[in-house]
Nucleic acid binder design. Structure first.
Ligand SMILES: [Mn+2]
Ligand SMILES: [Mn+2]
Ligand SMILES: [Mn+2]
Ligand SMILES: [Mn+2]
Lengths: 220, 220
DNA sequence: CCTTTTATTTAGATTTACCTAAACTTTATT
DNA sequence: AATAAAGTTTAGGTAAATCTAAATAAAAGG
């Protein structure tokens, strides 16, 4: 099954949207995820169905087949390993690596991927806290996928971020929030669902619901 | 100047053929270097001329402009740095890295390239003995470009190989020839220009002119 | 210098991945 | 249930990078 770069990007996005809970991935959702037009998605859906990577019936949305899932996990493995490489070895910061990994992920070589993993010490999570599928395509469940805005606990540790945009990650940098950061919830404001937080030895600050939705936490 | 992958591969091949001495690079030579058809080369030549990366007049062959040369050196820098990475950090052997670097070279990020170089200790030559252009696009002259079949000296050191095919490199592996290997020329046979060689503590062996043309040496 | 051979270009197709605009389905709202 | 709105697909096009076959130009050989 030899996939083009475009096909790989589609497969990865379908995987992402399925994982986010979409029962069947809609044409519009995919188009907006891939920053393309719905008509283009329909075209590609026909091609991926032909290749048996997705199930697709007109107007019924898209789902990955077992083969499609396998392909997705392999792409995601490469993506996340390269992100680790860029952060751990080339000293990039977490907001810089996603775009680069978006390209590096398309160099397909199992040997290189496995050697890279080994070189990095077989990391289990990438710089945004997402789990890295192993060579067999098995991915550890996200260590916690409770977003900050949905937890009741008062003392929390940041385990992942779900949005990898430079905008969000730079905001978090500015506030001193990174993976492993421990947070105290001072107050939740019902009006706009904003949350007041405190990090030890620092002044408290408030974040919007938009932000808190994208911070994955576990209680400590 | 944003180049497609195809354009980058053309630029790199033109650079290579010019370096090998072609005054003006011919359509056929480029086609065979790129494993494509002459008609496709003509099409691309028009496009690259439009972008001012080459000088080209119908039937007159192709030459890189200053801009074209700059682009070529930047691609070659990335290619060779990735080859170093694969050999030095991921323990690949020299015959495995060219194809992978052929893809990795197209991920364009000056920051990543420079960080990679630094991470590798700013290497000056790649695993095949070719010099690596620096961040400013300056490339050290090949340390020696005397091919074995043209030298008179009896005691030699291997400094580079000019053909990067798996076939040649595996042959050299089998004979114990790598960068830095010291060779004694035992005999030159005029009939077929084959050469009998000896490496210290090993039995002598003979190589064809085909092979000796691709081994770059310096006297010691 | 004329002719044959070789090299190169043009013309016309094809494939992939897009796009816009129009048509059609599904779903939501009165 | 009828209609409006939203979502999706089709039809028809474009641009990039290929290709084959035919035409044309350059080079080589007598
Ligand atoms: Mn990422
Ligand atoms: Mn990608
Ligand atoms: Mn190479
Ligand atoms: Mn390449």
């Amino acid at each position: 099954m030899n996939l083009s770069i475009a096909e790989e990007n589609y497969i990865k996005s379908i995987y992402k949207l399925e994982e986010e809970g979409q029962e069947a991935v809609s044409t519009n959702a995919l188009a907006s995820e891939l920053d393309t037009k719905p008509a283009s998605v329909t075209d590609m859906a026909k091609k991926l169905k032909e290749k048996k990577l997705i199930e697709y019936e007109k107007y019924q949305g898209i789902n990955l087949t077992a083969d499609g899932k396998k392909a997705a996990l392999s792409i995601i493995r490469r993506h996340r390993l390269w992100e680790c490489f860029l952060v751990d070895k080339l000293a990039f910061s977490w907001e810089e690596v996603h775009e680069l990994a978006e390209e590096l992920e398309h160099v397909r070589s199992e040997k290189m991927t496995n050697r890279l993993s080994e070189f990095l010490g077989n990391p289990q999570i990438d710089p945004h806290g997402d789990p890295i599928p192993d060579a067999q395509g098995k991915m550890g469940k996200p260590r916690a996928h409770t977003p900050l805005h949905k937890t009741k606990a008062k003392r929390l540790e940041v385990v992942a971020v779900s949005d990898k945009s430079t905008a969000l990650l730079e905001f978090l940098n500015a506030k001193g929030i990174r993976l492993g950061t421990q947070l105290d919830v001072i107050e939740r404001y019902e009006f706009d669902n904003s949350i007041e937080l405190k990090i030890r030895n620092q002044p408290a600050f408030t974040i919007s619901e938009q932000v808190s939705k994208n911070i994955m936490v576990k209680p400590i």
